[in-house]
């Protein structure tokens, strides 16, 4: 049974045949669409390396069937920058050394983008750490990650003309 799904990935409309219904959104992105920025870590929803935005909300792509995302809007790490201009969260991760080996970084950044749009964390490092708890960093770059998210939050608040 071959399914066919249509979805938007980073603003581009795609129609993809799915020969195997077991395909996850993670495998769809990496193996079928060729977007390998989204990483496979545990493949069981425990590490967060595969975090993407599905209709604007962060989810684990490894625990999402590709067949079930028919008609949705997916944003991956490849879709954040505008040309050569980095997304503010990407820039903050570089500025604050929010990584070492970099494998978890796409997931960390997508999760941080999701966290900021949820608007719950504000400028509270404790809420940011809790809000980033779905992303494991084996290099333990957590202090840099927290600093980067705090900074990105501050910049976003300034751009919106409000104080965090």
């Amino acid at each position: 049974m071959t399914l066919s799904i249509s979805l938007s990935v980073n603003g581009e409309s795609l129609s993809v045949p799915l020969e195997d219904p077991r395909t996850t959104l993670l495998d769809l992105l990496r193996e079928h669409i060729g977007l390998t920025g989204t990483k496979k870590g545990c493949d069981r929803g425990q590490c967060g390396a595969c975090t993407v935005l599905l209709d604007g909300k962060r989810i684990n792509a490894c625990l999402t069937l590709a067949a079930s995302v028919d008609g949705t809007d997916v944003t991956t790490i490849e879709g954040l920058a505008t040309g050569d201009t980095l997304h503010p969260v990407q820039a903050a991760f570089i500025e604050h050394d929010g990584f070492q080996c970099g494998y978890c970084t796409p997931g960390q950044i997508m999760s941080a983008v999701g966290l900021l749009s949820e608007g719950d964390a504000g400028a509270d490092p404790e809420r940011i750490r809790e809000g980033m708890s779905g992303n494991i960093c084996r290099c333990a770059a957590y202090p840099g990650i927290t600093a980067a998210v705090l900074d990105a939050q501050r910049r976003q608040s300034e751009n919106e003309g409000t104080s965090a």
Partner: peptide
């Protein structure tokens, strides 16, 4: 419970 990503799904 769980993580923010899991709670969204």
């Amino acid at each position: 419970g769980a993580s923010p990503q899991l709670r969204n799904a």
